[in-house]
């Protein structure tokens, strides 16, 4: 089926009644600020695990007690999340986009390993739609059989960009550009405005972070243009027009955009970009939470998946931080405000 022929009608959305009901019940088990406070305030790993054992992660804690590594435990938890998604999804063309992000991750690992001539196999993640072997064959031997067109184009363009620039950042940007463009195509074809809006916001915030990073690095304007991704709500020309302006005046430039607060909070500590990173995650999480006002459709399931994935990322960070004696302030500084 051509993507352009693919739509999810309102009656199609009603088919998600079971899935949305289940997700609404699961949302009550998401960790709260109080749960994260207990985890962060725990004196040591054991106390953090006891606190985690009182939450939705109790099975994971039991697994740890039986000798499983934390990486195995969190991997298993991710596996549960993907199984739930498969169970609830009636439109795999749409929900597969969540897995395609992992195809992109694996492609980045493979291409960086090839260009840097190092072994990065330990970084592969098993949640993509394409096998790592197939991606490896495509990169090493040019054998693209069975791969979707967007992946083929992404690989070919990234290899040619690398040959021109020899810059690992270009690898990331080229692949990101292809993924975002593909996801927007899928969501627009399915007429899923909420999810198209999510991708547009991800593009805008990625461009905002790129803009800030390049300013700090003293990059040239031409480098900024090459690094910005099209498809967001803010045109790349906007960033280029304000590239040379002082930090203090930047928030006023974003007053009329959706990102006024992100910029105000993100640039509140001048050249320290940690607040910007947090403000961007806060913004995306608050956008995804709006799916709670959608009574039917794939959106609440999709949003739950992304929110749970974010929670899992931070639980993993806190537990691994405790295991390695990391100062809780380091994580607290980066943790999304919803968890603080």
């Amino acid at each position: 089926m051509e993507l352009t022929d693919y739509t999810i009608s309102f009656s199609g959305k009603l088919k998600y009644a079971y899935g949305v009901g289940r997700v609404r019940a699961l949302e009550r088990r998401l960790l709260t600020k109080g749960d994260f406070a207990k985890l962060l305030e725990a004196k040591d790993l054991q106390e953090a695990l006891r606190a985690l054992g009182e939450t939705d992660y109790s099975q994971a804690v039991l697994g740890a007690a039986e000798g499983a590594s934390y990486e195995e435990i969190f991997r298993a938890k991710e596996g549960e999340l993907f199984s739930l998604l498969e169970e609830l999804s009636l439109d795999p063309e749409v929900t597969d986009t969540l897995r395609k992000r992992y195809d992109l991750h694996n492609l980045k690992v493979l291409l960086k390993a090839k260009f840097g001539e190092e072994d990065l196999d330990y970084l592969f993640l098993p949640w993509g739609t394409e096998g790592v072997d197939a991606l490896q064959r495509a990169i090493d031997e040019g054998d693209y059989r069975g791969l979707p067109p967007w992946v083929v184009e992404a690989i070919q363009e990234t290899i040619s960009s690398w040959e021109e620039s020899q810059d690992p950042v270009v690898v990331d940007l080229t692949l990101d550009r292809h993924l975002f463009s593909h996801l927007l195509t899928v969501f627009r074809a399915a007429k899923l405005d909420f999810l198209s809006g999510w991708i547009q916001r991800e593009i805008d915030l990625l461009n905002l972070k790129t803009f800030s990073r390049l300013r700090l690095a003293g990059a040239e304007l031409v480098e900024l243009r090459e690094s910005l991704i099209d498809g967001g709500g803010i045109e790349p020309e906007f960033y280029m027009g304000i590239f040379a302006e002082p930090w203090e005046t930047l928030p006023s430039r974003f007053v009329t955009t959706l990102y006024r607060r992100v910029v105000e909070e993100g640039f509140s500590k001048g050249e320290d970009l940690a607040p910007l990173e947090r403000a961007c995650r806060d913004y995306i999480l608050s956008y995804l939470r709006k799916a709670r006002y959608t009574p039917f459709g794939i959106e609440p399931i999709y949003a739950y998946f992304l929110i749970k994935e974010e929670e899992l990322r931070w639980v993993r960070a806190v537990i691994l931080g405790k295991e390695n004696g990391l100062d809780p302030k380091f994580i607290r500084k980066r943790l999304p405000s919803d968890y603080l």
């Binding site: 009644a17 949305v20 009901g21």
Partner: peptide, 17 residues
């Protein structure tokens, strides 16, 4: 049929409801 499906989804996670 519609709330029945929604309720089945909720009950699969929280039968006490």
């Amino acid at each position: 049929g519609l709330p029945g499906q929604s309720a089945a989804g909720v009950l699969s996670e929280d039968p006490e409801k």
